[in-house]
Write a protein that binds this DNA or RNA. Structure first.
Length: 238
DNA sequence: CGCCAGGCCGTGT
DNA sequence: ACACGGCATGGC
């Protein structure tokens, strides 16, 4: 017997996902499908996911071009390049020491468990892949889920700072909500859909959330060009 | 100039 | 378990 708190939680468990889905629908109608991730290959998605950690995407693009121009945006290229040289190429995206080591560690995982094949990695069950990714240096829950969803085609749900603000500021979850709390809520918003549709919604949700964040013009004041972004992300708490 | 960007990690309570 | 600072660089 768990009392009123339990009943309140169970009630929230059904209504909050519906409210979140309504917010998602508004965003999608306002901004349109985003066709994410902005990359040509799964490996480019993965490298981009590392590089974009706390970093503007424009900076990531510079690094990706540095790698692409030298033929290093391949598994073999990243395997053969020295970590020292890799640092130089990814320098525009910051944290070059950590990120170079992290990317090297991913290639090492790919080689030791999957024969250097991203296809084999994608065939592995996400329940196995996610914890393996999380053991890697420089991979937290958001990077792991971004790789699962956008590079490996799994129905993962990415929780970023913008989604956290969306759900807390609209009172769907308390400000103390953790990553997995928010992820469970977001997964619940689409659990009625068939798997393929669900994966597509997960894809578009994170994509449109980031698009809103990009257009938001800073988090303090209302921006003339993006009133919807302000309303959805900077809504009064509760 | 100061703040921020599509986080993660080590350390101190 | 949780808060907090450091990590590097470039854009605005």
């Amino acid at each position: 017997m768990r009392g009123v708190a339990s009943r309140a939680t169970q009630s929230s468990a059904s209504v909050m996902p519906a409210r979140l889905r309504a917010l998602y629908t508004r965003l999608l109608e306002a901004y349109g499908p985003q066709q994410w991730w902005p990359a040509k290959t799964p490996l480019e998605v993965i490298v981009g996911a590392y590089l974009t950690q706390n970093t503007a995407w424009t900076s990531v693009e510079k690094s990706l071009q540095n790698l692409e121009g030298r033929g290093l945006l391949t598994v073999e290229g990243l395997r053969e390049v020295s970590e020292e040289e890799l640092r130089i190429h990814i320098r525009p995206s910051g944290y070059m020491t950590r990120k170079a080591a992290a990317i090297k560690a991913f290639i090492a995982l790919l080689d030791s468990y999957y024969g250097g094949s991203l296809e084999k990695l994608a065939e592995e069950a996400p329940e196995i892949v996610r914890p393996r990714l999380l053991e890697l240096p420089g991979v937290g829950p958001e990077t792991a889920d971004a790789i699962l969803l956008y590079a490996l085609g799994q129905p993962a749900m990415v929780v970023d700072e913008y989604l956290r603000r969306l759900v807390t500021r609209h009172g769907l979850l308390p400000a103390s909500a953790r990553y997995m709390d928010i992820q469970q809520l977001a997964l619940g918003a689409f659990q009625g859909d068939d798997p393929a549709t669900r994966r597509q919604h997960h894809n578009e949700f994170h994509a449109v959330i980031v698009e809103v964040g990009k257009r938001h013009c800073g988090r303090v004041a209302r921006c003339e060009g993006c009133p919807l972004a302000y309303d959805l992300l900077n809504a009064p708490i509760g």
